[in-house]
Design a binder for these strands. Sequence first.
DNA 1: AAGTCAACACGGCACGTGCCGTTCCGCTAT
DNA 2: ATAGCGGAACGGCACGTGCCGTGTTGACTT
Lengths: 199, 199
Amino acid sequence: MADKRGSRVADRTDAIMRTTLELGQEVGYAKLSIEAVAARAGAGKHTIYRRWPSKGALFLDSLLSLNEPELNYPDTGDIEADLREQIHAAVDLLSKPPLGPLYQALLVEAQQDPQVAEALNERFIGPQEEKTIARLRKARDQGQLSSDFDLSLAMALLSGPFYFQVLIARQPLTREYVDRVIEAVFAGIGPKAPKTAGG
Amino acid sequence: MADKRGSRVADRTDAIMRTTLELGQEVGYAKLSIEAVAARAGAGKHTIYRRWPSKGALFLDSLLSLNEPELNYPDTGDIEADLREQIHAAVDLLSKPPLGPLYQALLVEAQQDPQVAEALNERFIGPQEEKTIARLRKARDQGQLSSDFDLSLAMALLSGPFYFQVLIARQPLTREYVDRVIEAVFAGIGPKAPKTAGG
DNA sequence: AAGTCAACACGGCACGTGCCGTTCCGCTAT
DNA sequence: ATAGCGGAACGGCACGTGCCGTGTTGACTT
């Protein structure tokens, strides 16, 4: 039976998503076409269009279906060490092949398609942020952070430089770079001696 | 003579670039087609393809032809105040209509087209970085920055959160947010009491 | 100095290709 | 019977490339 007509819906859906990732890795997201996905997956285009409203939605679902990103925070009591650990893991996962290029493409697509942006935030970035903020909150309660700090601002300070490095500067994200950013975000770039008093 | 054949090359080039920006604002970068630019500019597609290898290159040239971004640093002696001033100006220019959406689209295109990325870095982002770094260096020499600091890292710490806010969090860039980021980057998110030695 | 002309750039048109999103058809498992 | 499927075909759009007739330009002739 070379045909898959009538097989279980979930199987068909999985096959399409797997093919999407496969083709995405081969030709890149930009050149990925629904037509090609349908052809390789042995599916009708209609079957794809029935389930996903856009290429971006299909791609997002496909990526999230991997469900790998169980990026949970360690909690050793040392917030800087835990952040390093966590960010190293995230970097390993999201900035290197095979997932890196795909995740990056998804960020690009999110810029162009508000629906994808919303879904991405809701289903991936948001939850990750919450985990980070929860961990930061605990640290703040333990006096490891400036007490009056807006935690979502801290989030941005910690994440921004990495996105900057990848998306704008287009430089590789090394562990050393991660460590330097974390250290600097904690210490600040101001002079070591307090600003207020004479330095 | 409704025809522009043989008129000066620079005029034709300008007309095409102006039309590109115009159409870009109307339909957005994604739906911008060279065909439409040619039609509205009263130009042949060849004339466009002859000068620009890609839609991205045309768009980049068109944006840079505005030549507005003379974002030069003030130097009042107070690095934090100068950074605020400078970043406020940059934010006003690059995150609000009419240029904001176009600049954002250019960043997106740079993700997909390495040639555009390189040109963008070389002709816009790079020079701006250099100005910032030069100003930071002066501040460091005056003792307003931690003395052993890598200035390009400071660059990333200062820029990253803003790109994050726009591209990832998709939130508006307010002056208040800018001020909070700058303050935090200087002070650090660590506890107020100095970690290293007694202040 | 005035006239001439080949080279060049141009606008416009048409072509073949690729992918879009949709529609129809025949098949198959339920 | 019905609903979902694979597959084929559709019209539409934009791509990038040829070709054509036309206008401008600058070097050469007179």
